[in-house]
Amino acid sequence: MTVHGPVMPIWSCGGCGLPWPCATRKHELLAEYADAPVSMALYLGSYLVQATEDMPWTPAGLLHRRFLGWTRENGQAVPAVRRPGSATVPAEIEPR
């Protein structure tokens, strides 16, 4: 259990007082979700929704970068899901 959890409704870090998620928590999350980046994005996305309700004056883009944007900056891009037999381009519509 980390001490770097969010203090709501101001969304600061309970461990260091910086805006949550702080650098320490980000490193912890990357380690915790190393094999599950989509799960980490869903987890952080749920906190993003709560933060937008608690801080409606904060620009949406800023909150998005704070809660989710950093996940791709660290080379942890969410992999695309490719199902066997699925087309990579939309099928052409046949004329009537």
Score class of each variant (00 low, 15 high):
residue 13 C to G: 06
residue 30 L to G: 08
residue 43 Y to G: 01
residue 77 A to M: 01
residue 53 E to G: 10
residue 46 S to F: 09
residue 7 V to Q: 12
residue 18 L to E: 12
residue 38 V to G: 07
residue 88 T to I: 11
residue 56 P to L: 11
residue 94 E to A: 12
residue 71 T to S: 04
residue 71 T to P: 00
residue 3 V to G: 07
residue 8 M to Y: 06
residue 54 D to W: 10
residue 44 L to D: 01
residue 18 L to T: 06
residue 20 W to H: 14
residue 6 P to I: 08
residue 53 E to V: 10
residue 6 P to K: 14
residue 67 F to Y: 06
residue 10 I to P: 00
residue 47 Y to E: 05
residue 44 L to M: 15
residue 49 V to D: 08
residue 69 G to M: 05
residue 54 D to R: 06
residue 66 R to D: 00
residue 13 C to E: 07
residue 12 S to E: 15
residue 89 V to P: 05
residue 49 V to I: 13
residue 16 C to E: 03
residue 77 A to T: 08
residue 4 H to G: 11
residue 37 P to I: 03
residue 96 R to K: 13
residue 1 M to L: 06
residue 58 T to I: 04
residue 82 R to M: 04
residue 34 A to R: 13
residue 66 R to T: 02
residue 46 S to P: 00
residue 61 G to M: 10
residue 58 T to E: 15
residue 45 G to S: 09
residue 35 D to E: 11
residue 72 R to A: 11
residue 7 V to K: 13
residue 79 P to H: 00
residue 78 V to C: 12
residue 28 E to G: 09
residue 37 P to Q: 03
residue 49 V to L: 07
residue 24 T to E: 10
residue 84 P to Q: 10
residue 59 P to D: 14
residue 95 P to H: 02
residue 32 E to S: 10
residue 9 P to K: 12
residue 8 M to N: 01
residue 20 W to G: 09
residue 55 M to A: 07
residue 50 Q to N: 03
residue 18 L to Y: 04
residue 42 L to T: 09
residue 55 M to P: 08
residue 79 P to S: 01
residue 46 S to R: 15
residue 33 Y to K: 09
residue 5 G to Y: 05
residue 91 A to Y: 01
residue 67 F to W: 12
residue 8 M to V: 13
residue 77 A to R: 04
residue 18 L to N: 11
residue 40 M to A: 13
residue 55 M to N: 09
residue 6 P to T: 14
residue 42 L to H: 14
residue 26 K to Y: 00
residue 91 A to D: 06
residue 54 D to V: 03
residue 71 T to K: 00
residue 76 Q to G: 00
residue 24 T to L: 13
residue 35 D to M: 03
residue 21 P to I: 08
residue 57 W to L: 02
residue 55 M to L: 15
residue 7 V to F: 02
residue 73 E to G: 05
residue 28 E to V: 10
